Computed example of a mutant assay.
Amino acid sequence: MIITFVVMEGVAWAMHKYVLHGFMWFLHKSHHTKHDHAFEWNDLFFAYYGTLAMLFFVFGSDPIDYRFWIGAGITLYGIAYFVIHDVFIHRRLRVFGKSYNVYLKALNIAHKVHHSSSARDGAASYGMLWVSWKYFRSAHEIIRKKKQQEINRGSLLNQRT
């Protein structure tokens, strides 16, 4: 299950770069376009991965064998994708507040870089969980500056009272 979860990051990267930004762009472009509706054509890819996981569960459950655990790994990755990508990054559900976590900030920066192009070609950072070190450096610097601003604001408030 854990191996499948880890492998799914590579599968997601390759699918995103070569399929979603390739021949399935006609569905994925809805994700790169500003809109005010709750769902995108891109959400259909959840159905694909859900069906794939379901098939692994069905064919690996009597008796339980490796296919069941592959389905579980795909499902866990799907849950992580939903929470991180849809809820945390795109705020499709408003449950997360500010975060000073360097990893989460780097993840957010990498995704913004990916969305800086609304075209099929020219995007960067196709994965979900793996983040290039250059984004960690940027995230660390941004968080350091924000914390310093808050400290400065707090010290200015203390001086006035």
Rank of each mutant, 00 (worst) to 15 (best):
V113E: 12
D43C: 06
V113Q: 11
W69Q: 00
Y103L: 05
D43S: 11
L52Y: 06
H85M: 13
V113A: 09
S99M: 07
L44C: 08
N101M: 07
S132I: 02
R67N: 11
A123E: 09
R91A: 08
S125Y: 08
W41T: 10
H111Q: 07
H85T: 07
G71Q: 01
F96A: 00
F45P: 07
T75K: 02
I79K: 00
F57G: 05
K105Y: 07
I70T: 02
A47C: 11
A110P: 08
D62E: 10
R67E: 05
S132T: 01
A123S: 14
F136D: 05
L52W: 06
D65K: 08
H90G: 01
V58G: 08
A110I: 12
S61W: 03
V95S: 00
F57W: 13
S99I: 04
G97Q: 13
W130L: 15
I79T: 05
I79V: 14
A124G: 11
V95I: 15
N101I: 12
F46N: 11
K134T: 14
A110Q: 05
F68C: 04
F136H: 04
W130C: 10
K98I: 10
N101P: 06
W69E: 00
P63V: 10
V58A: 06
F59V: 12
S99Q: 02
H37R: 15
H90I: 00
S118P: 11
H90T: 05
I74Q: 02
A72L: 09
Y81F: 14
G78S: 04
W130G: 02
I79M: 07
L52Q: 02
S116H: 12
K112N: 10
E40Y: 14
Y100K: 12
R137H: 12
I84F: 11
A53W: 03
V58M: 08
N101H: 07
D121E: 15
Y77A: 00
S61K: 01
Y126G: 10
L107D: 05
I89G: 03
H114A: 05
A53I: 03
A72R: 08
A53L: 09
G97H: 12
F39C: 13
G60R: 01
R137D: 08
Y135T: 04
S117I: 13
A38Y: 13
S99L: 06
N101R: 09
Y66F: 11
R67I: 03
F56L: 05
L55K: 01
R137I: 15
Y48R: 07
V87G: 00
N101F: 02
F39Q: 09
I74G: 04
S132C: 09
G50L: 05
R94F: 06
Y48I: 15
Y81V: 09
H37N: 14
K112L: 08
V58F: 10
R67C: 12
K105N: 11
F96T: 02
A80R: 02
H114D: 06
A53F: 02
Y49S: 06
L52F: 07
L93E: 06
T75V: 00
H37Q: 15
S132A: 13
G60N: 00
S61P: 03
T51M: 11
S99R: 07
F39H: 14
V131E: 03
F136G: 02
